[in-house]
Amino acid sequence: MTATDRPQSEPDRLRFNEERIRLLHKSRPQNRAVQVSGGLFVCMALFSLWHLDLQWGRLFADPSEPGLFRFLNQDIRPHVTRQPDWTWADLGTWLLTLLRDYGLRATWGTLLLATAAMGLAGFGGLLLAPLAARTLTVPDPYMGLQNGRRSLLSSAVRSLCLAMRALPEYVLGFLLLALLSGSTWPAVLALALHNAGILGRLFGDSLEDVPVTPMRGLAAGGARPSGLLLFGGAPQAFSRWLAYIFYRFETCVREATVLGMLGVISIGYYAKEMRSRQFYDELFVLVLLGALLVLLADALSGWLRSRLRQG
């Protein structure tokens, strides 16, 4: 269509414009797979909501009956404030006693759990990454055409990573609990295995994505895969690796708050205990402590990552 085709009279021009809009609409980018998946997901969600047979009664129950209102009004209220003549000093003493008795220990234990697991996971990720990077495991890396070359080793390692991260940390920890003596290793190992699977894959991906020119230069100079990794791949991917480690640390802390339920002294451990004793006020304080720790880890990791981006 050129400018000379443009009709002159008003109604013609309107019709012409409508036609063009229709054509534009028809030629918009469409994707069958995305549309089908979206529709399928919506259908599945509606079916699930119906089939789960949700009972909302207790959510809106009268405050005199067990339900959300009573829980918020009575159960999670610090028990010292349930007396008619309570003072803020009582509340402070209660909170301080709680923190001294187990609150601080629980928070510290959670942090230790996350850090130890992160150290192990980072180590595991570093071991897995070069093997998962297809650009390094093909014969004659960075020589000749790279596209479409497959590597059996990398596929196997990537499947291993998938299997490691497919199982939830809690399930892994639960299974390891009976297999290992003591209760700290199962939680640490569960968290470490899951994250090593994730980091192995992410580290490997960033090794594959490093700029190729230095790598080609090294390869042309006769560097072997180990040399390519140590002097080309690792230095170039290192910032990304650190960013991934910080990012995972955030998630690790969050996950560590509940892994304590498997028996490590941490927030989850005491949360489970307070639940079984029905001390819901103390349970609520523990949940808040956990949230605080997660938010702090979030802020720390965000700050470190922004520093890393600035160079």
Partner: peptide, 15 residues
């Protein structure tokens, strides 16, 4: 910032 399972414990206690 509150983990799914901690939410679960809270809601189990509440409703």
């Amino acid at each position: 910032s509150v983990h799914e399972l901690l939410w679960a414990i809270l809601f189990l206690a509440a409703i």
